[in-house]
Each structure stands twice: as structure tokens, then as C-alpha cells.
Amino acid sequence: MTNTKRTLEIKILTEEQAMQASAPRFLDAWNKGEYAGEYLTFTSPGMFFEVINARRWDLVVKLQKLGKTSIRELARQVQRDVRRVHDDIKILIEHGIVEQDAGGVFVPYDEIHADFTLTAEAA
């Protein structure tokens, strides 16, 4: 997986839809023995927006441009309080969108794709 572009696909699915979607993806990746991307699934738009709000999305975008950096430098770049940026980065790390090592924080994905559909039935 060293030369493979890492991708993250973010979806909003019901628990049933998430279970139905994960089994074929797992089996396909297992059978092919190839990297098939990574997935983050939320069961409601509310849960999605609770984790990925506008300020946190801005941090992800800025980190993709900057590469690995310190939280202090990230806060300086986005002109926000260091403590608030730290709190937001902690949540993004907990959900696997951002990673951290001794060199700083970074987005490990070359590509992030968010996908969801709103229907009258879901309302």
C-alpha cells in the first residue's frame, strides 16, 4: 500500500444501509487483495454535521494544503485560537479524518469524497 493513493469516502447511511454496503466492499477487497479505500459512515445528517462542521472542514482543507504541521501553526494559518483548533483536531483524529505523529497533525488522504442523498422519506 506504499504507493497507493489513500482515499476516504464519507457517507450518510442508515445502520441497515451501512451493513449492506460494507459486506460487499470487504469481500471484494479481501478477494482482490488490493487497497479499496477507507470509509466513514454516519447514520444521520445531524451526526455528520456534529462531527464535520464548517470550521473543522476548513481545518481539513488547510491541512491538505500545508501538509504535516503543528496545531499551533495550523491555528495561526486559520487565524483561530489554539485551544479551539486543538479541540477540533481532537475530534477529527477520533473519527480518523486527521492523524497525528511526532511531526505534527496531517490529513493522510490524497482524496476525500463526501456523498449523501436527502429524500422525503428520510425527513
Rank of each mutant, 00 (worst) to 15 (best):
4 T>H: 10
4 T>M: 14
4 T>S: 12
6 R>N: 07
8 L>G: 10
10 I>K: 14
11 K>S: 11
11 K>G: 05
12 I>K: 08
12 I>V: 13
12 I>M: 12
13 L>T: 07
13 L>C: 12
13 L>S: 08
14 T>S: 15
16 E>N: 11
17 Q>D: 14
17 Q>H: 11
18 A>Y: 06
18 A>K: 08
19 M>T: 09
20 Q>E: 08
23 A>D: 02
23 A>Q: 09
23 A>F: 11
23 A>G: 06
23 A>E: 10
24 P>G: 03
26 F>Y: 11
26 F>R: 09
27 L>Q: 09
27 L>D: 02
28 D>Q: 05
29 A>D: 01
29 A>L: 04
30 W>E: 02
31 N>Y: 01
33 G>H: 06
34 E>K: 09
35 Y>I: 06
35 Y>F: 11
36 A>I: 04
37 G>I: 03
38 E>I: 02
38 E>L: 04
38 E>Q: 03
38 E>M: 05
39 Y>P: 09
39 Y>I: 07
40 L>N: 11
41 T>K: 05
44 S>F: 11
46 G>M: 12
47 M>Y: 10
48 F>P: 05
48 F>Q: 12
49 F>H: 12
50 E>H: 05
51 V>L: 09
52 I>T: 08
54 A>C: 06
56 R>G: 00
57 W>R: 06
58 D>G: 07
61 V>A: 09
61 V>E: 03
62 K>S: 01
62 K>Y: 02
62 K>C: 07
62 K>W: 03
62 K>P: 07
63 L>N: 00
64 Q>A: 06
64 Q>R: 04
67 G>I: 01
67 G>Y: 01
68 K>N: 05
68 K>E: 12
69 T>Y: 03
70 S>M: 06
71 I>E: 01
71 I>K: 00
72 R>E: 13
72 R>C: 02
73 E>K: 04
74 L>H: 04
76 R>E: 02
77 Q>A: 04
77 Q>S: 10
79 Q>A: 11
81 D>G: 03
82 V>I: 06
82 V>P: 05
83 R>P: 00
85 V>H: 12
85 V>I: 03
85 V>D: 15
89 I>E: 08
89 I>M: 10
92 L>G: 12
92 L>C: 13
93 I>Y: 13
97 I>L: 14
97 I>T: 13
98 V>S: 12
98 V>I: 11
98 V>G: 10
101 D>V: 09
107 V>D: 08
108 P>Q: 09
109 Y>N: 02
109 Y>F: 14
109 Y>I: 09
110 D>N: 15
111 E>F: 14
112 I>D: 05
113 H>Q: 14
113 H>G: 15
117 T>S: 13
117 T>A: 14
117 T>Y: 15
118 L>H: 15
119 T>G: 15
120 A>F: 05
120 A>T: 14
